[in-house]
């Protein structure tokens, strides 16, 4: 039987650095998310419905605090902002089975949109993701819907269509492992990446 091996592209040192920064911000976010959720009583296993939506919002606020409290804001960066700067915030989180960008993540979209519209030669990949619940191919569709929602918002802010590529990974590339609501929440996301930077 045949076995195909595919190479893994090397990370550039800049990407490596970005990854480090991203990871440190994310770890703070995660701590706050966990705190936010535990105050609500922890894991919510309900498939759908009002209770869960409320729990998500609670978590969302935790994340918001994290971002704004520790955020590498866009203040004063102006035109000098590269993917290094708006993009320490490159992840947008979503509620269960939803694709609308919550107000607390609008600044992440705007930061990246401003960078792209002021750098028409730059391109971004919007990676859509879903949590692990339910069917994997349906989750591919949900992930794409989230990425398209971000793309739509960016286009409204002047980003050209050709600057954006959308890939949905569904539940196949979780940001973090685990099987509870706080994990699922960190996995329902769109990641904005800048290939070749």
């Amino acid at each position: 039987m045949f076995a195909a091996h595919l190479g893994r592209p090397e990370l550039t040192s800049e990407e490596g650095m970005m990854m480090q920064m991203f990871k440190s911000v994310l770890s703070v976010l995660m701590m706050l998310l966990v705190l936010g959720c535990s105050s609500k009583g922890g894991v919510n296993e309900e498939g759908e419905g009002g209770d869960e939506a409320a729990a998500n919002r609670e978590g969302g606020r935790g994340a918001k605090t994290g971002q704004y409290g520790y955020g590498r804001g866009r203040s004063g960066m102006g035109g000098a902002a590269g993917p290094g700067s708006p993009a320490s915030q490159r992840v947008i989180y979503f509620e269960y089975d939803r694709d609308d960008v919550l107000p607390e993540y609008q600044s992440v979209v705007t930061g990246n949109a401003e960078y792209l519209s002021s750098h028409p030669e730059a391109t971004a990949v919007l990676q859509g993701h879903a949590d692990e619940r339910g069917s994997s191919e349906y989750n591919i569709a949900l992930g794409e819907r989230r990425a398209m929602s971000v793309a739509r918002s960016m286009r409204l802010q002047g980003v050209a269509d050709r600057q954006l590529q959308i890939v949905s990974y569904g539940e196949e590339k979780p940001a973090t492992s685990g099987h509870d609501e706080s994990t699922w929440q960190r996995n329902r996301r769109v990641e904005i990446t800048y290939p070749g930077r």
Binding site: F2, A3, H5, L6
Partner: peptide
């Protein structure tokens, strides 16, 4: 078990 293919990126369905 026999490997049909491997990849650093997801394989599905």
């Amino acid at each position: 078990p026999r490997v049909v293919m491997t990849s650093p990126e997801p394989i599905m369905s």
